[in-house]
């Protein structure tokens, strides 16, 4: 199903009810899957309806690779990381990367860089490292979580 149709379907289901508070769980790798791309499309479509609120996006498993600031996609290709950064800058939607999943994959912020005594860090602007506990909070503060894998 095309993402936009999926959005309409999901949004229409809930028309009669209260506005939806969404959060997204993204688990698919930005290279092996289109999870990060589809989630982005979904979010943009969902934001067209002003009644919906998006509480945050939590990246887990290989999806945390989206937060690698060092990636250099070819100039003529879509830069999915940059697109996420632009989205969060515009709509102030927090983008969380699971800290355990990130650190094991080399997505390191300044604090973790110091903790592991590393000479560099790699976390992109726009993203923050958080524990899975943050995801549990998201689950309890939203009406629906949608997983993209």
């Amino acid at each position: 199903m095309r993402p936009f149709l999926l959005v309409n379907l999901l949004l229409n289901c809930n028309k009669a009810q209260n506005p939806m508070h969404y959060a997204l769980l993204v688990t698919g790798s930005p290279y092996q899957t289109k999870a990060c791309h589809s989630a982005l499309k979904f979010l943009k479509a969902a934001l067209l309806n002003k009644e919906n609120t998006l509480e945050g996006v939590f990246f887990y498993e290989d999806a945390v690779l989206i937060g690698n600031a060092l990636t250099q996609p070819p100039r003529d290709e879509f830069d999915v990381r940059k697109a996420w950064v632009e989205l969060t800058n515009e709509h102030k939607i927090p983008l969380y990367l699971c800290i355990a999943a990130s650190v094991r994959r080399g997505i390191i912020n300044e604090t973790e860089s110091q903790r592991y005594e590393l000479p560099q860090h790699s976390l992109s602007e726009g993203f923050q490292l958080e524990g899975l506990g943050t995801f549990v909070e998201l689950m309890n503060s939203t009406t629906k979580i949608i997983q993209f894998r």
Binding site: T27, Y60, E61, D62, A100, A101, G131, L132, G133, F135, V136, M139, N140
Partner: peptide, 19 residues
């Protein structure tokens, strides 16, 4: 893959938070 490991990690965290 790490999928089972990370899925189980999530389950343990949910349980830790009494969910």
């Amino acid at each position: 893959s790490l999928a089972c490991k990370e899925g189980l990690d999530l389950a343990l965290v949910l349980a830790t938070f009494e969910q």
